[in-house]
Nucleic acid binder design. Structure first.
Lengths: 231, 231
DNA sequence: ATAACGTAGATTGTATACAATATTCAATAT
DNA sequence: ATATTGAATATTGTATACAATCTACGTTAT
């Protein structure tokens, strides 16, 4: 009984518990860091990733580094040749176009489904990120607000597989998305289009939100393409 | 000069060279084997994969086993909890439906693009797999011929990213595809529909091939769904 | 001078060793 | 009898050690 009472006392902590089984391992942390570095462009395409170098950076052995690299390779962010090492994947112009096509296909599907189930809290969250994106003066943060805005609009769809694929697609072109926002007039255009997408969601018109999302993605690709062609 | 002559002699081997850098490592082989086992259903969903057990199976240490498991997890085929180990991913009915939806979206896009660039050799290859599928009496091989048939029809599209996503989607539901063929009247229906899809490709009508592919996928899902509901 | 070779050092892939955590089950308390 | 504890065992995560392979560069032969 004494013990049972102790347990009951702990019931007061309901909701405060943290699932320590989901705690990040070394390789998880290294994976996240490398992924962030790659998708942000801090680690450039074509750059090679020496295991020992990364290991020293994180003060660990090569084992967790290799595990992180294996996951990144499965996702396509790096490539490896046996005994030669890992290199950040290169994207051809055709690759970029193809990935934008996938985004323009999947993201409208998801937002349409999401709008049908969208909670007021989600709308509020999306509005918040939309505003943060619009008012951000530090251009290095535009990419992040942009992604959080769209992510909020997708989450109620309850489409984990779609979201996984969309996430992988965005990861592959994330540095291009940021460049498009910063180096072209993309930011101004995106600000307007985000408001239009958000409005469609508020109206509960999923189909319209989907159409606008598709146009938003394809339009940003055209701007990007024009920019890249002129380099 | 002597050495140069030796090299010139070797020119006779042009085309016979094999890129040994692409040779499979232990972890590659283990990855392939586990993937095959999981997608075929030999290793069942929910089953846990003890590292030591797998390592003994292949007569290696746990290191390459863990690398294979990391890649499988990135692909979604297994899931892990820190210090608890790896488990073959479970699919809810909603997951299965979602993945079939992705297939029904992406595969028509790819076949349409593929048909526009399809070579006679590819058509011949597809015809071959179509025939092998139709005439196969060993039902355990239907899944393989089926996948090879569709794969042949997609390959000329030159859409590596689409194909990667489609491959991952099919991997996740591969055991369901096989079950649908073997445990329902799916084989008979598939045989007919394959011929129709192939005919559209021969005609060079990519849009029609796409529409028929979409119908093929959604139809097989409906049969599968009905079968699963009656279990 | 140029091309092939060979060796030293660098880098990767995997085995072994050890530390951290989980699981099991007998012993104990209620 | 049931619930809880704690020690023994099992399993995982990572460090270290070593073997396989690659890379760079000086040496040799032509």
């Amino acid at each position: 009984m004494k013990l049972k009472r102790e347990f009951e006392v702990l019931e007061g902590l309901t909701g405060l518990g943290i699932d320590l089984a989901k705690t990040a391992s070394s390789s998880d942390i290294i994976y996240d860091a490398l992924r962030d570095g790659i998708i942000s462009g801090q680690i450039k395409a074509g750059e090679s990733l020496r295991q020992e170098h990364v290991a020293k950076l994180f003060n660990v052995s090569r084992i967790p580094v290799r595990e992180a690299l294996n996951r990144l390779e499965a996702q396509g962010l790096v490539q490896s040749l046996r005994y030669k090492g890992y290199v950040v994947s290169l994207l051809s112009p055709a690759d970029v176009e193809e990935i934008y096509e996938v985004r323009a296909t999947l993201e409208p599907m998801v937002i349409e489904k999401s709008v049908a189930m969208m909670t007021p809290e989600t709308l509020e969250e999306a509005r918040k990120y939309c505003e943060l994106f619009s008012s951000e003066t530090d251009s290095s943060k535009w990419g992040e607000w942009n992604r959080l805005f769209h992510g909020a609009l997708y989450k109620d769809a309850k489409r984990p597989f779609h979201l996984k694929l969309i996430g992988e697609a965005i990861d592959r072109v994330d540095s291009y998305i940021r460049a498009q926002l910063v180096l072209t007039n993309g930011m101004e255009k995106a600000r307007k289009e985000h408001l239009e997408i958000l409005a469609a969601c508020v109206e509960g018109d999923g189909e319209l939100a989907g159409k606008r999302t598709r146009k938003h993605i394809l339009g940003s690709y055209k701007v990007l393409r024009k920019y890249l062609d002129n380099q």
